[in-house]
């Protein structure tokens, strides 16, 4: 089976800083992969290479087996769901117009209906929220609009960059719950960037731990917890209190 997304030996430098130092990873269709790491580990750069917001210096990105550099970047971005950090809503557009953006860019005649349906899916009743301005929403609501915008077109792949990062603990749990439910319902292939191991383990089918532009370990949560491949991963688990939890469970 051809992976939905794949990178091979991906490299990227920003001046002297090496963001990606030869990363290889496959994301299977319908799978949710979490990219975990500290800031500067290269996880966001890797995410953005999938929709050509970042152009790599070396290596290849394959989208359903085709090299991404052969694809029209504008088209690729439109067809890939994307939830930027802190939402990135257009402040001068209503909630509905924001949620309908990608559908409109793809020329879908029913963009507004799709937007409303996606908002509904994320628990934002269109009647109540569709005509509001982003500034009239809470942080969690804004984040849900951003997710709705990514899902409204029914994409095969969604890329999420710290989608729950800026939220308080309660809202975070809520939005996370929404995401989980939707993924189960839609089966969308997802790549999720997070610095929170708990989140990664709760949501993802597989977790890739990045450090200094390399993948330390890519495995299912179970394997990761039981057999950390490197001392770095073990320390990371320990710091998150996960290693202890496992030991306690034994």
């Amino acid at each position: 089976m051809i992976p939905a997304l794949e990178v091979r030996e991906l490299q990227k430098r920003y001046g002297r800083v090496r963001a990606l130092a030869g990363v290889s990873l496959e994301v299977l269709s319908g799978e949710c992969v979490a990219l975990v790491g500290e800031s500067g580990s290269g996880k966001t750069t890797l995410l953005r290479a999938f929709n050509r917001v970042v152009e790599p210096d070396g290596g290849v990105v394959l989208v359903k087996g085709r090299p991404a550099r052969d694809l029209d970047p504008i088209r690729l971005r439109r067809e890939t769901g994307y939830v930027p950090q802190e939402g990135g809503l257009m402040p001068h557009w209503t909630v509905r117009k924001n949620a309908a953006l990608v559908a409109r860019l793809l020329g879908m005649a029913d963009a507004d209906e799709r937007a409303d349906a996606a908002l509904e899916l994320l628990g934002l009743s269109p009647n109540e929220y569709a005509s509001r301005w982003p500034r009239e929403l809470s942080g969690g609501q804004r984040q849900r609009v951003a997710i709705a915008r990514a899902l409204a077109t029914g994409p095969e792949v969604v890329l999420l960059d710290e989608p729950f990062g800026a939220l308080d603990a309660i809202t975070r749990a809520q939005v996370r719950g929404h995401f989980k439910a939707i993924r189960q319902e839609l089966g969308t292939t997802s790549v999720l960037v997070t610095h929170d191991l708990h989140e990664a383990i709760e949501l993802a089918d597989r977790v890739a731990v990045l450090r200094d532009g390399r993948i330390e370990q890519a495995a299912t949560p179970g394997v990761l917890l039981e057999k950390p491949a490197t001392s770095y991963v073990a320390r990371l688990l320990e710091q998150a209190g996960l290693a202890a939890a496992i030991e306690g469970g034994r």
Binding site: R75, R77, P84, G88, L105
Partner: peptide, 18 residues
């Protein structure tokens, strides 16, 4: 102009003119 909005617009596939 709001850098987050601009960045999101580009990443979602708006053309530079859009």
């Amino acid at each position: 102009a709001d850098p987050r909005a601009v960045e999101a617009a580009e990443a979602l596939g708006m053309t530079p003119l859009q």
